[in-house]
Design a protein around this nucleic acid. Structure first.
Lengths: 364, 364
DNA sequence: CTGAAAGCGCTTACAG
DNA sequence: CTGAAAGCGCTTACAG
């Protein structure tokens, strides 16, 4: 990490609270009640040591003066943290937005506050964001990494003492002794079961559409797809594994690649990298005069909210991102409670949700 | 605010940092370098008072020991805050997710950290979340309020001394002396210009579709719609103002309401409350044998990413949510710098983005 | 140019 | 049951 980048973050100017009305503190309450501030502190945490009358007087005074607890001060003294950093690669993707909502929900329920950071898929920005969040000494970090994030890179910024949970994508590289928990989807099994469903519907010419082949999730899903084909004795056609950026627009634009080489023997079905790609592909198919759900079968992955109301509604693998968010928060807090636990890697199964985008292979 | 709810939040257990390796502090660096910690502090903030050699020695030592600045401690001492609370009503809506990303981006660039909270459209949860975030004494709050949030309610939780910026929806009620800035879209002018465009395309039977009539944004958009009709001398038909929850699913389900009462004189176009509704309506129309973009015109509002890749691509009013997020952050920080400024209410114009969902009214 | 001291708003033994 | 004192990790006058 360049030194001046690191120093830079400290020199920001802030607006002093001094010229605003002074905050009410424990001292103010204690003085007003004629007790010590230790007593007020005990009231705050509901200690049974305090006499009921005293407690009552103190509580009333807090209400009266509009006292607001200063958790930062308390945390400093107790050497604890009530914040968890959440760094998201792409908030505009509903899958990750839902995940973030789930994390925040679960953390909030446990009394933690979420420090948000978004990397917009840029490893450089991700480093910056992590560095800035580290200065708040979070109890842990939940990271949905930017594409091609490097483990060593991240260790440099966050050190080895802050619990880290990586979501969704494995980190590239791996620094020896740099440990983190992992929560991901069972991409391989998921893609396999999507492919198997298409096979069961009678399709034999099935493409794998979309995604960047280097990303770990795309690689795994392709493997699952191949597993299913091989298990049925079908060949894997490299020209039917089509790469696109994992977005609706790109998928739409590349739909014709499915039919480029094969005048008649073209695919009748596609296992898509994710829902965004599947929705884009369906649009592209319509543009090409095909009718997804009628003469072409499409499956997605993620089950984002739009999948259910697509045209046609999309058969997809449900990953329940909000539930994943809650699960990630749980895992991280467990780790924070027991730093010496061995590394955990949880891979959650995804479930086929069948809708209307996957007709039988009746039209050859 | 019930007293025990308020106390409840303080008693959460945390995991002490004590059993983890002790953090490196300024003291450690000072001791190792044989200087006082005041000197180290000066180095940290780039003071010119420190001798270049000393600075060098100190910086090297920080690198060596892996020192991480503790901003919470610094903030406590300086009586400043480097956090801003961001409370969002619905993170799973890409419009708000984009807004959140914009806020975080702009705050990060100014050295602030974002404390995230999501209310899931529940005023009760919103109160809770705000209460919890207040304990971190944020420099300000950016609130995209839950439906039917009450101003008095919110004042009770956040007091009058923390700068507040409300986004998108006005708060119901208004406590005298409770001041906050407001950033919103020009809903009325936006809906008016969408309607005017449909009129210019020859449509004369235009519905206003979707949204909850009580919400301020829906009320304003309906007014703009009526403005345009009246300006063209057309009557406003109450049965053509159709209420639905502002979601794709609900809009889809209520599409037939457009044609319920008017066997032949039914609308040929609909100004929709927002994009989600418009996308749902287009799906519903297709279900009913209509062809949005061919024999029926639909406009949206927001320009969420899906609008451009809808079927057909949706004509809509662009609100550039990410830019709005940046703007909200700017406004809040300006307010934090100058608490005595008069209240500001900024209403940004939205722009018509014409796509394929709005054909001429050629088919009567 | 550097150091000793006080203080931000809390909590926590330790006395009484 | 309550109070006086020390300390979390910083910054900030104030001396020197």
């Amino acid at each position: 990490m360049p030194q001046d980048e690191w120093l830079g973050s400290i020199q920001t100017r802030r607006y002093p609270l001094l010229d605003r009305p002074r905050r009410i503190t424990l001292n103010d309450i204690a003085r007003a009640c004629g007790v010590s501030r230790a007593t007020v502190s005990l009231v705050l945490r509901g200690s049974p040591l305090v006499h009921a009358d005293t407690r009552r007087r103190v509580e009333d005074e807090m209400q009266r003066q509009g006292y607001v607890y200063n958790r930062a001060a308390a945390n400093l003294r107790q050497r604890v943290s009530s914040a968890v950093a959440l760094v998201i690669n792409d908030l505009s993707n509903p899958f990750f937005a839902e995940f973030a909502a789930g994390v925040d929900e679960a953390l909030g329920a446990k009394g933690y506050v979420t420090l948000l950071g978004s990397s917009n898929e840029s490893p450089a920005r991700q480093r910056q964001v992590l560095g800035s969040l580290m200065e708040h000494h979070p109890a842990g970090i939940i990271l949905s990494p930017a594409e091609s994030s490097d483990a060593g890179d991240i260790e440099l910024v966050i050190g080895r003492h802050t619990p880290l949970l990586v979501f969704n994508r494995e980190l590239a590289g791996s620094a020896a002794g740099f440990d983190y928990d992992f929560l991901g989807l069972d991409n391989r099994a998921g893609a396999r079961s999507a492919t198997e469903r298409l096979l069961a519907l009678g399709h034999t010419r099935i493409a794998f559409f979309g995604g960047h082949a280097e990303s770990s999730s795309c690689r795994e899903r392709r493997l699952g797809y191949q597993d299913a084909l091989r298990a049925s004795g079908l060949p894997v056609e490299p020209r039917w594994m089509i790469e696109t950026a994992p977005t609706r627009l790109e998928a739409n634009a590349h739909a014709d690649a499915l039919f480029a080489a094969d005048a008649d023997g073209a695919p009748t079905a596609a296992v898509c990298y994710n829902d965004a790609v599947a929705l884009g592909l369906m649009l592209g198919l319509a543009r090409l005069g095909r009718h997804p759900g009628v003469d072409f079968a499409v499956t997605g992955f993620d089950d984002i909210p739009e999948a259910a109301v697509g045209i046609p509604p999309l058969t997809t693998m449900s990953a329940a991102p909000r539930a994943r968010g809650r699960q990630a928060a749980e895992m991280l807090l467990q780790r924070a409670a027991a730093p010496s636990l061995p590394r955990r890697s949880v891979v959650v199964p995804v479930q086929l949700t069948e809708r209307d985008s996957t007709p039988h292979a009746s039209n050859p």
